[in-house]
Design a protein around this nucleic acid. Structure first.
Lengths: 254, 254
DNA sequence: CGGTCACTTGATCGTCTTCAATACCAGTGG
DNA sequence: CCACTGGTATTGAAGACGATCAAGTGACCG
C-alpha cells in the first residue's frame, strides 16, 4: 500500500476529466464544479492511493466511512450471492465518483481491473464541506441522478433483453464512454475481459463469446484482438440493442 | 382530469410519511427535512393532482419539466422496448419522490396502479428553492443514493437470481415497505397484479404464478387471496432470497 | 518448447418461455 | 338464483434460449 499523500495532483486530474461544461451528458465528476479555494480545502483532506490490478479497495458490507474519486484506471463494482454468483453493477474510470451509499455500509465491492489511482475522502469531513459549499452537493446530486438513470437502463437490459441485444447494447454504451459531447468512437478498447462482461450483462462467459461471434458473423463488428473491437455497422447495432430486429431473422437473412 | 389546486395539504401528507427521523432505512420523502417556512413556499408552487388507476402521468421521453411527490396511492415506473417488452424499474407509494432525471427528458413512464394523488412542482422553481434551502438538496441526495442502492440490488436479482429466488426476494422486500424501523409484516397486501410482478422481476406471468405455487407447496407462504400473502417461514424465505439453498433440494425436501 | 491463461467452439441439458386450456372471481342482467 | 361475461390467475405440454460440461485453439511467457 502506497503511503497516502496530501497533494492537489488529484484536483488537476478531476478537472481534466471534465470536458465541455455545457454538455448535459458529460461525465459528472464529483469535484468538477468546485472553485479553486474549495478545491484546495478538498485536496487537504484527500488521500491519494494506488491500487494494483486485482486489488479490492471497497468491500460490500464494510463500514462506509469514505468517498472515492477515481483519478486514473478502471475498476469493477459488483455484488455477490453467498454461493459465489456475481453481478457487476458498473465499471468506473477516470473522474468517476464512488461511495454515495447513504446507509452505513458499502453496497458493493470495488476491485481494480487495471491499476487504479484514486482519492479517498473521509465521509465526515466531506459532509462539513458540503454544508459550506452547496455546489459540491449539487454536483453529487447530479452524479447520483445520472447513475440512477443508467441503473434503470441496465434493469431493462437484464430483465428483458436477449443475450445478443445485451452485448450490442454494451458495445454501444462503451463506444460513448469519455466522448460525452462529440461523435461516438467506432473503435474501442475494452478494459475488461469476457468474464467481467458476462457478469455485467447477466450472462455466462460462453454466451458472451457466442454473441461476439454472431455479431462478427453478421458483419456488425470486427474483433481486432480480444479486447479491441471495431464497430462496422452502428445503425444495425443500435437497432439490435433496442429491439429484436436482428433476432427475428436469426437463422438466415432473406 | 382534476383541476390543479394550490393547497398545503400535500405538506401534511409528506410529513406524515416520515416516521422516526433517526432511522437510516426510512423512506426518504422529498420534503421531509424542510422547516415550516420553506414548506409553505413549497406548497405555494405545488399543484395537487389526482390520477385514476391506469392513468399515465409521466411518459418516458417527454420533457422533464416537473418533479413529483406521491401523496397517496401506488404507481408503477417502467421502461419499454419498441416491440412492447416492458421492464418495471420500481413501484412508488405514499411519500415517494419522482423525477430526479438530470437529463431533459424522463427516463421512465409512470402509471397509476391504484388511484394516485400527487404534488407536481415545476423543475425550475424547485431549483431556486434548493439554492435557498440546502436541506432540500441534501434530502434529494439521500433519496437518490437510496434508490441507487435499491437499483443495484435489483440488478443482482435480475442478472443472477433464479425465478423462485426473485419471487422470494420480492415478497421479503414488500414485507418491509412502510415499516422502516420496526418488525417486518408477515401479512402483506400486494398493490400490483401478477403481470406487474412479472415485469418487475424480469419473468413471465406464468413463471411468477408457478413460483408462488412452489412457495406455497413448500409451506413458506400462504395465499389468502390473489393479492394477500402470508409469510409462514420468513427464515426459509430469506435463505432462498439470497442464495439457492432451497433450490438445491428441489424435487422433495428431506 | 511446455506451461498457463483467456477465449472459442461443440454437444447436451435444464430452466424459463410460449402456447393453450382451464379455473377462479366479481359484476351484471336474465 | 344462476347463467353469462371479462379480467386475472393457475396449470399443462412443447419448445427455445442460454447454461453447463467438455474439448480445442491461440497468445503470451518463462
Amino acid at each position: 500500500m502506497i503511503r497516502p499523500q496530501l497533494r492537489p495532483v488529484v484536483i488537476e486530474q478531476a478537472l481534466a476529466a471534465m470536458p465541455c461544461t455545457t454538455c448535459g451528458a458529460r461525465v459528472h465528476s464529483a469535484c468538477g464544479a468546485i472553485d479553486d479555494h474549495d478545491l484546495h480545502r478538498l485536496a487537504s483532506m484527500a488521500h491519494i492511493v494506488e491500487a494494483p490490478a486485482g486489488r479490492v479497495f471497497v468491500r460490500e458490507g464494510d463500514p462506509a466511512d469514505s468517498f472515492f474519486n477515481i483519478s486514473s484506471g478502471t475498476a469493477r463494482l459488483f455484488k455477490e450471492l453467498p454461493d459465489g454468483r456475481r453481478q457487476i453493477v458498473g465499471f468506473v474510470g477516470t473522474g468517476h465518483f464512488l461511495g454515495l451509499a447513504v446507509s452505513d455500509t458499502y453496497a458493493f465491492t470495488a476491485e481494480a481491473i487495471e491499476p487504479v489511482r484514486y482519492c479517498r475522502f473521509p465521509r465526515a469531513k466531506l459532509k462539513d464541506l458540503m454544508v459550506d459549499f452547496p455546489a459540491m452537493e449539487k454536483r453529487l446530486l447530479s452524479v447520483a441522478a445520472n447513475e440512477l438513470v443508467a441503473a434503470q437502463e441496465q434493469m431493462l437490459l437484464l430483465g428483458r433483453k436477449t443475450s445478443i441485444e445485451r452485448v450490442a447494447s454494451f458495445l454501444l454504451a462503451q463506444s460513448v464512454l469519455g466522448v460525452p459531447c462529440g461523435q461516438p468512437r467506432n473503435q474501442l478498447s475494452l478494459k475488461m475481459g469476457r468474464g467481467d462482461i458476462a457478469d455485467y450483462l447477466g450472462m455466462r462467459i460462453e454466451t458472451v463469446s457466442r454473441a461476439f461471434g454472431r455479431l462478427r458473423a453478421e458483419k456488425l463488428i470486427e474483433l481486432l484482438t480480444n479486447t479491441d473491437v471495431m464497430i462496422l455497422d452502428r445503425a444495425a447495432l443500435e437497432a439490435l440493442a433496442s429491439d429484436g430486429s436482428l433476432a427475428a431473422r436469426r437463422p438466415s437473412a432473406p
